[in-house]
Simulated assay, not measured.
Amino acid sequence: MTIKRQRGLALSALLLWGIAIGLVAILVIRVLPDVIEYSKIRHAVKAVASESSGKTVAEIRHAFGQYAEVEHIKTLGPADLDVFKEENQVVVAFAYERRIPLAGNVSLLIEFSGSSSARDSGQ
Rank of each mutant, 00 (worst) to 15 (best):
Q123R: 10
G114S: 04
K46I: 02
V35Y: 09
S107F: 14
N88Q: 09
W17R: 02
S113H: 14
Y67T: 00
A118Y: 08
A58I: 12
E111R: 11
R5T: 10
E86F: 09
E71S: 05
S117A: 15
A68I: 01
Q66N: 07
N88M: 10
A47M: 13
W17E: 08
S115L: 05
L23S: 12
S53F: 15
F64Y: 13
V45R: 08
F84Q: 03
A44H: 02
E37C: 12
G104M: 14
L102K: 15
R61C: 01
F112Y: 10
G18C: 10
E59K: 05
K85N: 09
R61M: 03
F112G: 02
S113W: 08
P33A: 00
G104E: 07
L76C: 05
V57P: 00
Y67M: 04
Y96S: 02
G114P: 05
R119K: 12
V35S: 13
S53E: 08
V45S: 09
S117V: 03
I21K: 00
K40E: 06
S113C: 14
D82F: 14
H43A: 12
P78R: 07
V91G: 13
S113V: 06
D82L: 13
S117R: 11
V35A: 13
A44Q: 03
L15E: 10
V92Q: 15
I110R: 04
L15I: 14
I26K: 02
G122F: 08
R30C: 00
A68K: 01
